[in-house]
Design a protein around this nucleic acid. Structure first.
Lengths: 163, 163
DNA sequence: AAGAGATAGTTTAAATGTCAAAGGTTTCGC
DNA sequence: GCGAAACCTTTGACATTTAAACTATCTCTT
């Protein structure tokens, strides 16, 4: 039924970190699958595209592809293809600023703004629905605790990422 | 820096469900990236391969591909390719039982068992390390709360999945 | 037994994902 | 100003992902 089966056999009592990780992973997978399904069914969009549009929606003047890559946690080469497809759909345009010709900036078109604002409203509703059985206080405390977990993880990366 | 930027602009105060979701997503992405990097660097393995091997490690007599698909939350077609590559590496073997020739069962080889048991120990250590700054009580309470969230999400899927 | 229907895996196409290497551009040191 | 270093993006090779079509096999009803 679940990723958690990995350890629930012999020694599930110990290893709380592993157990928490598997539960986090299976939960986000569950919710992601659902959101992906609905995005596809109702808007013909994919989840990575939605994420990318979301970033551009917040920065109306556009973002450099490298910045998009950092914000969406998607690799550089991947952003290239994503933006290409979104541009083909007329949701995004690419421009090279005068100052620095190494740079490519992606920006939402009018059509992209309109579509994303629809999708965002639906997306938020889906989440509220899926979390309907969780009391508001729990949501608040999870927010805090997951934040702490994230901080801990960030402090113990092998890579060179700081702050 | 993060997925959470999606909403932190104008009206971050409201929409706690959305905020929690974005934080969950960015946290699991962060940890996944790190685990993937280390699995690749130290064992030349990918995360989905690790997940699949983990399932087989728990069921030494092997699992049908469909069951593997369900447990890893990976689609059917995907399991086919994964097992193919693992078989090519000599970590897994495929067999068709006598009773039902539609069925394919995947099982770990001696080599697969040895490799996975190494990887699993390292994997657990990485997690303990990344969660080092989180007090044990918090880990326990997150375990409970995330479980509740997962239950809620499962109850509000549009798909036909029950229990 | 025949055939409809269910089930198990595989295959396919399009998209996403990684990493590493290659491309142009800009900037810096001198 | 020139060459080297640094920067930004693209490209290429390959693995993973989803959804849907397809093949093979089994089961059940009649």
């Amino acid at each position: 039924m679940d990723l958690e089966i990995i350890v629930q056999g012999a020694q599930a009592e110990s290893k709380p970190e592993l157990k928490l990780w598997l539960r986090l992973l299976s939960t986000t997978k569950l919710i992601s699958h659902e959101i992906r399904r609905r995005l596809r069914a109702e808007y013909g969009a994919t989840l990575p595209q939605f994420d990318l549009l979301a970033q551009l929606y917040r920065e109306r003047e556009g973002l450099r592809l490298g910045e998009l890559s950092r914000r969406t946690m998607v690799t550089n080469g991947n952003v290239t293809g994503l933006v290409e497809r979104l541009e083909a759909d007329g949701l995004v345009i690419r421009e090279t600023p005068d100052g620095d010709r190494r740079v490519t900036v992606a920006r939402l078109t009018r059509k992209g703004e309109a579509l994303f604002s629809e999708m965002a409203a639906a997306h938020e509703g889906w989440l509220r629905d899926m979390m309907a059985d969780v009391p508001p206080e729990l949501i608040q405390s999870m927010l805090r605790e997951v934040g702490q977990l994230k901080g801990s993880a960030r402090n113990h990366l092998s890579g060179a990422e700081e702050e």
